[in-house]
Design a protein around this nucleic acid. Sequence first.
DNA 1: GTGAAAGCGCTAACAT
DNA 2: ATGTTAGCGCTTTCAC
Lengths: 356, 356
Amino acid sequence: MATISPTNGATAGARTSPPVRAGRQPSMADVAALAGVSSQTVSRVVNARSNVDADTRDRVLSAMDEIGYRPNSAARALKSGRFRTIGVIMFGLSSFGNMRTLDAVATAAAEAGYSITLLPVALPTQGAVAGAVNRLAEQAVDGIVIIMEAHILDRIDVTVPTGLPVVIVDSDAGARYTVVDTDQTEGARLATQHLLDLGHTTVWHIAGPESSFSAGRRTASWRATLKAAGAPVPPVLEGDWSAQSGYRHGVTLAADPTVTAIFASNDQMALGVMRAMHEAGRSVPASCSVVGFDDMREADAFWPPLTTVHQDFGQVGRLCIEKLLRQIDSPAAVGPGTTIVPTHLVVRASTAPPPG
Amino acid sequence: MATISPTNGATAGARTSPPVRAGRQPSMADVAALAGVSSQTVSRVVNARSNVDADTRDRVLSAMDEIGYRPNSAARALKSGRFRTIGVIMFGLSSFGNMRTLDAVATAAAEAGYSITLLPVALPTQGAVAGAVNRLAEQAVDGIVIIMEAHILDRIDVTVPTGLPVVIVDSDAGARYTVVDTDQTEGARLATQHLLDLGHTTVWHIAGPESSFSAGRRTASWRATLKAAGAPVPPVLEGDWSAQSGYRHGVTLAADPTVTAIFASNDQMALGVMRAMHEAGRSVPASCSVVGFDDMREADAFWPPLTTVHQDFGQVGRLCIEKLLRQIDSPAAVGPGTTIVPTHLVVRASTAPPPG
DNA sequence: GTGAAAGCGCTAACAT
DNA sequence: ATGTTAGCGCTTTCAC
């Protein structure tokens, strides 16, 4: 709460002529000199230690105020070996789920007094991740969160420096790392079963990209649910998460009147499917039901409002930080393992019994 | 691979031994000892100085490799006074435009060899921003980007420490700071004029929150465009950027058959308006035209595909870093001022001439 | 081409 | 309650 008085640099320089050299941030030594104490005493004041005389503290505080002193975190980090910073490596910054997760991670970190160093990687390749991890290892971080749904992460063990705590979101590396993931399997099962329960003979599926671990699990669960119900399993249509890819597959599906139920692996692709249905003159849900995955904020404003699987990205982000801080505080006490965040189905207006 | 002895809890707890930090990162001194050189020579190798014997360099390099040496950025920063890090303060992490801007900022920074320290603030209040700036100003960053569309930023001058370069996105503080902004005025004019040109007698407007600087400019430009055309100016309907708020106003507007053209201040609110129109049985665009703002990725998959104003968030982010790095490199040479990134109208299927 | 010394700003440990 | 000393890991300066 350092309210800065309207002293600009020039004025301050004129008032305290001797010790303050221009162009350098004032150090503890400067404060100490001005207050007539040792820099150790300044350190005690800054760190709110109790053993400082009230009178002395006031003198130090006003000296700090006068020359605009701010602690140097680099020096502090050098001394303590702690940076109070967490590195986040992520691919696909602008995907809905990732940004919600990042938001929660950053907020939870801030609450714990940590900063976030963000390192987006352009491609989810082994090399890109390795480079990012290396950069972070040189950078001042106490731990790393990796948000990148890709099989690649099975092998990042070769790149993570010894002793640097890591938490991974959305991966199957739980055998070696601390992993936080949402319950993709249950979510996809709920979506598929919901459509079967409505009376559809089968459910078509627009999957995410093959490289995505989440997408793979949703697809596997969709297939297993159909099989368990004795329903035929249509061929998988692979999209790339974009509404455009959903639209392209939707055009094909809309032309087939036997298609009455579609489960898209995210909300954007579901949106694209619905657009294709509208254009083909097929009503959703009267002629064809559609279910998405994610429950993005706009999903209930789609036309029709989208039935979808809700993911609690906020909880995922919070858990990441919680697990990571635990590792940072006691590196030996925490083993690898996967934490699953539940999903649930949100039924809106895009699903109904099949026509006829 | 690093020289970590298998410390169990009990051994580590024994307090006779000095505080040996297991997992300590190897230092230059370690590398130097192993390679049989001085740490200064290691420093030269790390910094790729020319005056090192090829033979010596190889020995040092393999020693670095063997013990997994990584430079300590805190020490380097302490010595150099540079952090190669840029702080980003933002409110509304999960809004579409902010996220895209952040993505571009982070990518551009990474390309320039800078890291991003992200500080989301929960509320766009003066106090929150001041706290964030103060945290960043503890010399952990070389410059700050503030992404926060709010009038608050008119007054942040009291909180930014002298000499720390700052670039602000989306603000009217251009008189005192370096500001990068999109051409809100032109965008809103294009949207409004497009509807007038189609033959609508007037255009209704769903504005963003009053606190938003961008929203204010879009509203002002909408009003000015109507007045310039001699069209009546309907009352402003204020939303909060969410699709839900757009929907609520949409319900009201849909009930009024004289409403034939609506300009929403972002795409989400436009989506909500269209949902309300659909529910009321009014066709978009046959019965009522809708225009948005932002051109979010999904806009062309809305039903109907949304006519909207495209903002180049990527360019905004890139410019932020460019301007900031210039300030960092030569603090005195750069004055305040605003850089405007053009917007343009993307005409899709949600606009048409008025009915009848 | 290489090394020794000093010091960046801070704090833990030990004086006083 | 306050001061002194030493050193975190690195780089700059100056010796050799």
